[in-house]
Amino acid sequence: MTDFSQAFGVAFQLLIRGDDALYEIIFLSLRVSLTATLIACVIGLPLGAALATLSFRGKWLLTVVTNTLMGMPPVVLGLILYMALSNAGPFGWLQLLYTPGAMILAQTLLIIPIVTALTRQIIDDNWLDYREQLHSLCVPRFAAIQTLLWDTRASLLTVAMAGFARAISEVGAVIVVGGNINHLTRVMTTAIALETSKGELALALALGMVLLLISLMINASVLSAKGHTSR
């Protein structure tokens, strides 16, 4: 197996040479997954906080459903979205299929349950501590949720990173709704799948290393930012 040692060399060359095709794929991966993470957080953080702090009918059921959806197989979600976004489907008029927009949508839906469920747990734990104090200060419920979200921001940043990690690493959903179209919807994971199917194992592995390297840099910068904002 020379592929493994070869892969390091290829990965290094790819990055050093500044391969345009590679950078295009990296930027699209980041654009899609970061946007998806952002939207998922805008929806999932307040939703998780609401699940933790509000009491309403169906709350238990919603919590169970959210936790279950964390295990949604990406390819199944991709298939559902394909059928919805297809020109033969109900949302074909959006003309989203085979665009980065469809990929953002897929990854957003994929990670909303993760962000929501983890946020709910974190806010729930803190709510035990904060509830009496905030109640005593007559903080309105909406403002209380805001306060909790802000006060647990360090933990929630980890939640966002978990969502981002799931988004940028999945291939099943984006390959179905994106189509792995060169220069349009090809991202790191679909490129890896393609190179694997071409038998270019060293190149595929090298792309995998580049993907991990990017994740590493993002995690490192988030973690150092977190060091400044926590407590």
Partner: peptide, 22 residues
């Protein structure tokens, strides 16, 4: 806060929709 969220959503929407087929 609400207006911030709205602005965020708007810019996201822009990001999503600028990416359709030529």
């Amino acid at each position: 806060m609400i207006s911030n969220v709205a602005r965020l959503l708007a810019s996201i929407l822009l990001l999503v929709t600028t990416s359709t087929h030529g």
